[in-house]
Write a protein that binds this DNA or RNA. Structure first.
Length: 355
DNA sequence: CACGTTACGGTTGAT
DNA sequence: AGATCAACCGTAACG
């Protein structure tokens, strides 16, 4: 995959199959929606399929985050060392115990919750493979993959549970990144730590503070890792000389500008060098290259200090829920007003009417 | 026509 | 080291 070529969709937009849209576009989708632009118009203007617009907006409304989900990886292991240990204890205390009883006990004792309790078959397997010989504790197992770091952060990151309705307000997702997560913890919904709310992203932390994103050099982790940036309570676990390895890799492997927000503007501009190599390319008018954010010109260079224009920032930070509920049917053809609003947002030049 | 949903072909990253 | 698996992606098409 050394060279990622973009493809052009029916709307003339460029995308890379299998990869998330750049954050900049995701942000714009949300921004435009907040301005009252209808999804269909957003779709046409940004040349992103309406299904995608729909999905991103839906996710944003639900989670408050514009970020794509964590791609790749495996499901969190439910059979954490702690769980195994408990199973072993149960078995030792009652050798005749059934797997389903163990399962019940794990739940009852709060070792697991219903979302991460191992299946009966898993328990059986554990009994067979790891506990069958009780004299051979599974030490290496537990030391092998540092449980605290691995399992816990996983649980943090992927909780497949939807235990409590998300708060529809901007204060959603109060899961505190960096907070130790207990094994039985279920509280958060999938993977959107609060730091990823748009406010945070557009706001200061993730977007503006390279250190918050990665190491000291401003290299960001890849987009999918944004979640990990905050979900990992143990930063720099694999940092090399202060550089996040994954960030480095990313830069090499997938120069997705990583939508890196430190290259927010360049990302927006889709210069060939930082975006799949094709964004802003053939179809050109995706955005006016180089003019994405005239108001925030200080963002001009990736990795360099980022100062977001106050106005922009404010706009960005407040665009959640301003007029969302209630009137969700703004004027269908872009009113002049809306259009001006649009044009003013980051100075994007939008086609007056989608072809 | 707008938009929610989903099959599809794709990428990614942990195991 | 490479394969497998299961997560996610955006598009296209359907309803």
């Amino acid at each position: 995959m050394e060279q990622t070529y973009g493809e052009v969709n029916q709307l003339g937009g460029v995308f890379v199959n299998g990869r998330p849209l750049p954050n900049a576009i995701r942000i714009r989708i949300v921004e435009l929606a907040q301005l009252g632009i209808r999804p269909c118009d957003i779709s046409r203007q940004l040349r992103v399929s309406h299904g995608c617009v729909s999905k991103i907006l839906a996710r944003y409304n639900e989670t408050g985050s514009i970020l794509p989900g964590a791609i790749g990886g495996s499901k969190p292991r439910v059979t954490t060392p702690n769980v195994v240990k408990n199973i072993r204890d149960y078995k030792q205390n009652d050798p005749g115990i059934f797997a389903w009883e163990i399962r019940d006990r794990l739940l009852a004792d709060g070792v697991c919750d219903k979302y991460n309790v191992p299946s009966v078959s898993s328990i059986s397997r554990i009994l067979r493979n790891k506990i069958g010989n009780l004299s051979q504790p599974t030490q290496h197992e537990s030391s092998k993959h540092s449980p605290t770091q691995h399992a816990l952060s996983y649980n943090h990151m992927y909780s497949y549970s939807y235990p409590s309705p998300l708060s529809p307000t901007g204060t959603k997702m109060s899961s505190t990144p960096g907070l130790p997560v207990t094994p039985g913890h279920v509280g958060i919904s999938r993977a959107w730590p609060s730091v990823h709310t748009v406010s945070n992203i557009l706001g200061i932390r993730a977007f503006m503070d390279p250190a918050a994103i990665a190491g000291t050099d401003g290299y960001p982790p890849k987009m999918e890792d944004w979640a990990s940036v905050n979900r990992t309570p143990f930063p720099s676990a694999h940092c090399v000389n202060g550089l996040d390895k994954s960030a480095i890799d990313t830069d090499i492997k997938y120069p997705q500008a990583s939508a890196n927000l430190s290259s927010y503007v360049p990302a927006c501009a889709y210069s060939a060098s930082n975006q799949y190599g094709v964004y802003g390319g053939p179809t050109g008018s995706y955005v006016a290259p180089g003019h994405w954010q005239p108001q925030s010109t200080s963002l001009s260079h990736a990795g360099s200090e980022m100062t977001v224009h106050g106005g922009d920032l404010h706009c960005a930070m407040t665009f959640k829920h301003p007029s969302r509920d209630g009137d969700r049917k703004p004027p269908s053809p872009l009113s002049k007003q809306h259009h001006e609003a649009l044009n003013s947002v980051h100075g994007i030049t939008l086609p007056t009417s989608a072809s």
